[in-house]
Nucleic acid binder design. Structure first.
Length: 156
DNA sequence: GCCAACGTTGGC
DNA sequence: GCCAACGTTGGC
C-alpha cells in the first residue's frame, strides 16, 4: 500500500521542469535540513510512493506528481563545505541528513494554485493549507491526493 | 531544561 | 518588501 506525500521547492531554485530535464527524469531530493521533513524521508518514504510536487513562493501551486525510486540514503551534500546546505555536524560515519530519489510521473496540464486548493471541499485538513506550515516534506492522505489529481485532469 | 534572540520560510 | 510563524541556537 503506497503512501502519499508532498514536497516543496522554490521553482527559482529547482522546478518541476528542472526535474523533467534530468537524465531519466530522476533526481535526489537533497538539501532538506529540517528534522521532521528528514524523518519522513528517512523512515517512511517507500519505493513507489507518490509525491505531489509543489512550487512555493512564486505562484504557489501543485504542479505535478513524482514517485520514490530510491529509499533513503545519506545526503552527501551536507559533507561538502562548498555546498549551500553544508552541515559540519553531519559526517560520513554519522550522517545527520538523508534524501530519497524521485522520478517525474507527470507534470499537470495546469498548476493548481494554493488559493484554489483552499476552496476545495475535502482538502481542509491538509498540512499544506495550515497557516504557517513550513514543512518541505509532508504526508498527504490518499483521499486528498486523489482529489488533487482528479482536479488537475478534469480541468485540463 | 528554559527561554530569549535570531534566522528562515513562505504567503501576501 | 513585510511580517507571521516557527525552528534552532546558545547562555544560563
Amino acid at each position: 500500500m503506497a503512501n502519499y506525500w508532498l514536497v516543496k521547492s522554490e521553482p527559482g531554485c529547482y522546478s518541476i521542469d528542472t526535474l523533467a530535464g534530468e537524465p531519466n527524469q530522476t533526481t535526489s531530493w537533497d538539501g532538506v535540513r529540517n528534522y521532521q521533513a528528514r524523518n519522513f524521508m528517512r523512515d517512511a518514504m517507500k519505493l513507489g510512493d507518490k509525491v505531489l510536487f509543489y512550487h512555493s513562493v512564486t505562484n504557489p501551486s501543485v504542479v505535478g506528481v513524482c514517485e520514490v525510486v530510491r529509499e533513503s540514503y545519506p545526503d552527501h551534500t551536507a559533507w561538502n563545505p562548498e555546498d549551500d546546505h553544508f552541515d559540519p555536524k553531519s559526517t560520513e560515519e554519522k550522517p545527520r541528513w538523508f534524501m530519497v530519489d524521485v522520478k517525474l510521473v507527470e507534470k499537470f496540464p495546469r498548476a493548481l494554485t494554493l488559493k484554489e486548493l483552499r476552496q476545495i471541499p475535502g482538502l481542509e485538513g491538509m498540512e499544506l493549507l495550515r497557516k504557517g506550515s513550513r514543512l518541505s516534506v509532508m504526508p498527504v492522505d490518499k483521499k486528498e491526493f486523489d482529489i488533487i489529481c482528479n482536479l488537475a485532469k478534469e480541468q485540463a
